[in-house]
Amino acid sequence: MTLETVIEGLVALTIVIGAIFTLVGSYGLVKLDTPMPRLHAPTKAGTLGVGAMLIASILFHFATDGGSLHELLIMAFLFVTAPISAHFVAKVHIHREHTAQELPDPPLDNVWATRDVAPDEDMAGDQVPEPSGGR
């Protein structure tokens, strides 16, 4: 069993792992029924799938034509930005779907930050609650 066979097997294994995790992420996006659970599937499983494929790409190019590590740039970028975009989508969901009475109390402030807008500035336009307690 030569080194090339081992690297080829590793590349194939990571490609298959990445493909399965990407598929699981998008399937969860369709299957789960409410928006907050739906947020979990692509931001975790999808990112892991793309990371595995990038590892496969690094290994393959090192084995064949003198690769470099610049796929790590995409990996670092995706792993940093996926939680940020998930946080923004969760804020959009809180802002659009919930009134302030349904939400649990925030730990420090009077209202959640996305609900803390004056009624005439609220661009969502629906169900602007009165903040509980004085501002």
Partner: peptide
């Protein structure tokens, strides 16, 4: 059904496009 779901789906599509391009490079 909501705006957040559509934004999330677009984000997932761009991540999947990155995966497709990496596979094309391999």
């Amino acid at each position: 059904p909501g705006v957040g779901d559509r934004v999330l789906a677009l984000d997932t599509m761009s991540v999947n496009a990155v995966a497709l391009i990496v596979l094309l490079g391999i």
